[in-house]
């Protein structure tokens, strides 16, 4: 009786240790595995191959907490700006036909250098950098 009790106790302790180790190791191993975005502050964002962007097209990408407007000019060059209108924080868009950057809320207009040219925006759009690296477009912050 005492013998079987001891055995049971040992099994319980052994099982407890194994279970406990597993419940420590699982979180630790998961923690060590880097998440999809390996950094807190996004410093560069891959947005896809150059071929995905037709000349004269644009796309809004989420650069961390900031929406960024990526424009491919007719010349084939890329430009990137914070897509946040400097007037009241609406999201701006590129107008292919008029070749300007436009905010629908109050008709604010920026040129393709991000400068505010008409309407209420008080300041130019914040600039980002679009670089081509091995056939892929990478958006990054403009170094101060």
């Amino acid at each position: 009786m005492a013998e079987s009790r001891r055995k049971f106790l040992n099994i319980l302790i052994g099982g407890g240790i194994v279970g406990w180790l597993a419940s420590v190791l699982y979180p630790v191993v998961s923690f060590l595995k880097p998440p999809a975005l390996p950094e807190a502050n996004v410093s560069a964002l891959k947005v896809g191959p150059v071929a995905d962007f037709a000349a004269g097209s644009s796309r809004i990408v989420k650069f961390g907490r900031t929406p960024v407007l990526l424009v491919r000019l007719d010349s084939g060059d890329f430009r990137a700006f914070a897509a946040t209108c400097t007037h009241l924080d609406c999201t701006v868009q590129y107008r292919t036909d008029k070749k300007d950057i436009w905010c629908a809320c109050h008709n604010g207009i920026y040129d393709l250098m991000g400068r505010n040219v008409s309407g209420p925006p008080p300041r130019p759009l914040e600039q980002f950098v679009a670089t081509e690296i091995e056939g892929e477009i990478v958006v990054s912050r403009l170094e101060a």
């Binding site: 979180p27 923690f31 060590l32 595995k33 950094e39 807190a40 502050n41």
Partner: peptide, 25 residues
């Protein structure tokens, strides 16, 4: 330490990152 980034601009964000992006962070 594996994820924390000291610095005025990054410290807070890196803890937030640890808390909601890193598994079990």
């Amino acid at each position: 330490l594996l994820y924390y980034q000291p610095g005025e601009a990054s410290a807070y964000d890196s803890i937030r990152f640890i808390m909601n992006k890193v598994p079990f962070g």
